[in-house]
Design a binder for these strands. Structure first.
Lengths: 204, 204
DNA sequence: TGTACATCAGTGAACGCGCGTTCACTGATGTAC
DNA sequence: TGTACATCAGTGAACGCGCGTTCACTGATGTAC
């Protein structure tokens, strides 16, 4: 191993440790609530090392959000199931994601960002939206192509209504009331949402 | 005017000034972002006066939330319109409330509260939920009594689905993407939600 | 092989700022006589 | 009527703590010869 390799690997390991510690603490304490000292301790690193890897706290938060988006969303690509099941499947994954405690903590952190940090929100929003909205829209278009839906369907509107119903049970109740459905309950709720959705947008 | 009256009135006036200033700044800056010094300045009062009226910052926030809940929710009582219009009307009010910038700022503040402050969330949640959920449920039950709905309707589920669709367009898009619909667009969206809802829960 | 040196990610300790909070004091008013 | 006093909401200035950030230094390793 050359010196450069040694250093690069060590640095990458440390960076990973820092991101992991920061994600954990930002999720549980929020961006302002988690101090750089706590994060450094959790990552078994000095505070000065945090600043060698990230310009400041805001950049660290930004990196956490970026890695999270990259890690969570790719496997949301629509699975090759029969279309109606595919829509239920995506809905369920969406519901599960929004129910996850760590995700919820980070959503809390993102939602509460103010001032210059608010642009992470816009960024996260744009990405999360584009990826999830696409997964839902794709599934809906496939259903329409298969003749399973009202041919006059407004895809964006239909998608928003389905997402909204799922979000109520997961994101809204989670953020506002600290509620989290059991796995079984979540499945029932999501299936109910899909059923309601088909009553409006399915073939008449 | 007796001395006591004079003092009481002055104190009440100051208290109102403080609550108003705190509401404004908590909404725009968040609880941690708004400093007691800023709030005092906005209220034209010294910081020490804040502490004569409220035990600490957390209690001040609590008072702001309490007064907000008291001020906003009472006139949400279901109006005496024909039931279907009444449901649309409640939905629209709900959507408008969740779109209001100051409400949104305070929801942000409430959602991001951590640690001991998190109990405001539970408290606000319980109240807001009980009042709005009741308004929706009452309207739905009246529709059922009038024979306009599927007699087997699950009221809680139906209510959640309708609230969820409205929340997506207002609360979720607002909190995550900083979007806010125009008055006209909101009306269209809410009417769409109610239409979808009736496709599932209306008389078959 | 051995030794002096170069490199640079990582570090412990310190800095200074802003914040929530408190302290000792003020001043507007009614009351006693 | 006039004067000394009591009351207490309100105040300006200070306190001290915790935080994000930075500084001067360390130590693990390869390289030169």
């Amino acid at each position: 191993m050359t010196l450069d390799e040694y250093r690069t690997r060590r640095a990458e390991r440390k960076r990973g440790d820092i991101i992991r510690a920061a994600r954990l603490l930002f999720a549980s304490e929020g961006v302002e609530g988690a101090s750089m000292a706590e994060i450094a301790k959790e990552a078994a690193v000095s505070t000065a090392t945090l600043y060698r890897h990230f310009e400041d706290k805001e950049q660290l938060f930004s990196a956490v959000v970026d890695e999270l988006v990259a890690a969570v969303l790719p496997d949301e690509a629509p699975p090759e199931a029969p279309p109606r099941e595919a829509l239920t499947e995506i809905s369920l994954r969406y519901g599960q994601l929004l129910s996850d405690p760590e995700i919820r903590g980070l959503v809390r952190a993102v939602v509460s960002a103010r001032g210059s940090a608010a642009r992470f929100r816009t960024r996260l929003g744009r990405r999360g939206k584009s990826i999830f909205a696409r997964a839902f829209s794709d599934a809906i278009r496939r259903l329409r192509r298969d003749g399973a839906l009202d041919p006059d369907i407004d895809v964006d509107r239909a998608r928003s209504e389905l997402q909204g119903m799922i979000e109520h049970y997961t994101l809204v109740r989670g953020l506002l009331f600290d509620e989290r459905p059991s796995k079984k309950k979540l499945r029932d709720q999501v299936e109910g949402c899909v059923e309601t959705w088909f009553a409006r947008w399915g073939k008449r």
